[in-house]
């Protein structure tokens, strides 16, 4: 079995062959999504619930579309305004939903590890759509697919991840995935936005962006939350843009054919110059969004297959004992 996971909680538990299996299947869905008849049947009869404890438009839309294109019944729950605010615990919410027999649960939560906790309490497949500062696996997978399509491979590349590494689940998932696939990962950002002990992850750390970008095949920019810019972690927006914003001059230090990525939503003029974000020769930001739907279709398809197989085994076991 190329993909043996019950849930997709992070990149950390995945084997490189499982990552490749997801990406290979996602290629099929890229083709499907570009065809006129955008319908698959992999999730037919299944119920997918999107639980977003943090507001999100893009990721939620991507998961919703992915589920619908594969034939699932999709329900969106915006938990930011619901009973959670009335004091119900995460586990009670999970148990309530579990009683409705969903097959796929897509969860985003503000606390690291919250999705792991939830996955222990339900008997369906759980997908982590971002938990606190921990992981955001489908983002890393869609980035990987984008890189593989643009660069023709996903190994032995120099990849610079720039910006707010400390608060970014995207950065964590990406550096784990890219490390597993044997790439050279550099982290670029001010020391206040660099997590402790990060050198031990097998990455190179730079606080000078030009040095960090030198010879890079891929430049991955991260979003900097506005509330972190006013003297808390960096002195000001303009100083941040001056030192760590991606502009043509800094990008010139990377390889000539380096691609520029951003998980969105972008702060133009803060971490990235608008002209670069829109440069179709360098920026793959729109393609990332497209790959996002395909990768999420692939993840849910693979998890659904395992879920069906597991339920079938349980049914046979019960039949044998009953």
């Amino acid at each position: 079995m190329a993909f043996s996971q019950t849930h997709l909680l992070g990149i950390e538990p995945l084997h490189p062959t499982e990552i490749t299996a997801i990406l290979d299947l996602a290629e099929n869905y890229v083709a499907l999504n570009r065809s006129a008849e955008k319908h698959g049947r992999a999730l037919e009869g299944m119920t997918q619930i999107n639980m977003f404890f943090e507001n999100s438009t893009r990721t939620q839309a991507s998961f919703e579309l992915a589920g619908k294109r594969l034939g699932a019944d999709v329900m969106n729950m915006s938990m930011a305004h619901s009973s959670v605010k009335k004091g119900e615990t995460l586990i009670d919410t999970a148990l309530t939903l579990n009683a409705m027999h969903p097959d796929l649960l897509v969860v985003r939560h503000g606390s690291s590890g919250a999705v792991n906790l939830l996955a222990e309490k339900v008997n369906c497949a759980v997908l982590n759509a971002g938990d606190g500062k921990h992981e955001h696996p489908t983002q890393a997978l869609l980035d990987a697919l984008t890189i593989r399509r643009k660069k023709g491979r996903l190994h032995r590349l120099s990849i610079a991840i720039c910006g707010d590494i400390a608060h970014s689940r995207v950065a964590r998932s990406n550096l784990i995935l890219l490390g597993k696939m044997e790439n050279r990962v550099r982290l670029v950002g001010p020391p206040t936005l660099m997590p402790k002990g990060v050198e031990e992850f097998g990455v190179e750390v730079f606080d000078d962006m030009r040095a960090g970008l030198a010879g890079a095949d891929v430049v991955m920019m991260l979003r900097l939350q506005r509330e972190r810019m006013d003297g808390g972690f960096v002195p000001s927006e303009r100083e941040y843009f001056h030192r760590y914003g991606l502009d043509a001059e800094k990008l010139a230090h990377a390889k000539e054919d380096a691609i520029v990525m951003h998980p969105g939503p972008m702060n133009r003029g803060v971490e990235i110059d608008g002209a670069i974000a829109d440069d179709i020769n360098r920026s793959v930001i729109q393609e990332q969004v497209e790959m996002g739907v395909a990768v999420r279709m692939a993840c849910m398809d693979l998890l659904a297959r395992n879920l069906r197989a597991r339920r079938e085994r349980e049914r046979l076991r019960e039949a044998a004992h009953g």
């Binding site: 690291s112 590890g113 606190g132 997590p195 402790k196 002990g197 992850f201």
Partner: peptide
């Protein structure tokens, strides 16, 4: 406690 483990788990940490 701050360090590799807390960073991996994305937990707010202190030295």
């Amino acid at each position: 406690s701050s360090g590799k483990f807390a960073s991996l788990r994305g937990l707010p940490a202190v030295s």
